[in-house]
């Protein structure tokens, strides 16, 4: 399935964006493509709400704000991967937070055009986020990289795309 992935910095500025598509599968329709950044930014409110919850994915408790949108999870103690946090007309949005509160957000689109909601496989998505997190930490180890600057390294780009190929677009 096509995905739109972005890393959002502390000032809600994108520091990296990428679209993962593959030839066999659907692409984002052109009219929707331009909307992606907006959809993604709209979900940042939910991310920031979940950011400070002690158990952001402990259960699908509908009473807490944003909770009804979350995917159910095994009660793991980790609070980096937030799981599915939002949806928008059949698009699913997942998020992940790094320790420095960088927001890793992704829009998943379904393969079919019938508008059926996208099923997120948490396992590979989570692994993808963790691997990108590692790449991000490596970026940060570069003394010439400043926090919240766009990541322009082609190596980073290549590696993220290779990871996407491995975990997401199969």
């Amino acid at each position: 399935m096509p995905c739109y992935f972005a890393i959002i910095g502390a000032k809600d500025n994108p520091i990296y964006e990428a679209e993962f598509t593959s030839p066999q599968l659907n692409q984002f329709p052109p009219e929707l493509k331009e909307l992606n950044p907006f959809i993604l930014h709209a979900s940042l409110d939910i991310v920031e709400d979940l950011q400070w919850q002690t158990h952001p994915q402990a259960g699908g408790n509908t009473s807490t704000s944003g909770g009804f949108l979350r995917s159910r999870h095994s009660a793991s103690n980790s609070n980096c991967y937030l799981g599915k946090i939002d949806h928008f007309y059949g698009l699913a949005i997942t998020a992940y937070l790094s320790y420095g509160n960088m927001k890793f957000v992704m829009i998943h689109s379904s393969n079919s055009n019938n508008g059926a909601p996208v099923q997120i496989e948490d396992g590979p998505v989570k692994s993808f986020y963790q691997e990108v997190h590692e790449l991000y930490v490596k970026t940060l180890m570069n003394p010439f990289y400043k926090l919240n600057d766009p990541i322009t390294s082609p190596v980073f780009d290549n590696r993220v795309r290779a990871l996407a190929k491995r975990y997401l677009t199969r």
């Binding site: 990428a18 082609p154 980073f156």
Partner: peptide
């Protein structure tokens, strides 16, 4: 051939024939 993320262009697609890692 990937030149990395360019914020003036926006997100770039992974194109079908792009080598996975140059």
């Amino acid at each position: 051939d990937s030149t990395g993320y360019d914020y003036t262009i926006g997100p770039q697609q992974t194109l079908p024939n792009a080598p996975s890692l140059s």
